[in-house]
Amino acid sequence: MAQNRQEDDAAVAPEALRAEGIVKRFGALTALSGVDLHLQQGEVLGLIGDNGAGKSTLIKTITGFHRPDEGQMYVDGKPVTLRSVAQARALGIETVFQDLALISELSVYHNMFLNSELTLKPFPLLNNRKMKERAKQYIDDMGVNIPSIDTQVGRLSGGQRQAIAVARSVYSDARILLLDEPLAAMGAKEGAMILDLVQKLKNEGRVSIILIAHNYSHVFEVCDRVNLLQHGRISYDKPTSESSVEELTELVVAEYRKARTTS
């Protein structure tokens, strides 16, 4: 069955990412109990699931922050074992974490280049001028409105910070981009801006995206396919064209009712 699916996919587009049987435990708690997930080249995959379903753990495992206890990951069809975020990055996997991983005390451009700083080779000194130039260009490309590239990130609004974090990931040559609830703390206008950006990236086809979302309608707006994560497993996997907000809502509510009656 898994074999067949793989062959079908191969006919459509090459696989950017595949996770098989990913298990992650924290002491007695099993956060992920065998996740099977795949992402095609240039695809936008919506990943939804209620609080505590293991979404953030899955993201952190895919990006090398956590190491899975069991299971195997494949990038471009090749098996990989991720030991660090840096290694995941080197493979082109970038994440915008829910807490954004921004440093309030540092400027926008230093945040955008955090841990991939440009230096004045062969000297180990920061090339601030070039980082400013590029960061400004990226921010302008995205249509984000910020006071200045020198602004401390702590001064920006939630939406602006989110946009900086997304821009940082997009422009760091990511090929697989994971967005962990990018629309969580955002007003309607800023949310629309981020969705437009995802749409733009999808049209350009230069990255494959996993969009983790709480809000189902966002998923149907930009995603090609939707996966539902329940109790540390992918329980549902369909193209958005064959699915609907109502169907997903029903599934989640039914699961909740079942859990309540058995407990």
């Binding site: 974490f97 991983a101 440093i103």
Partner: peptide, 12 residues
């Protein structure tokens, strides 16, 4: 010092 968790998530 500014954001230990964020910094390590960014790979610092």
């Amino acid at each position: 010092g500014g954001n230990p968790v964020g910094a390590s998530e960014a790979g610092v």
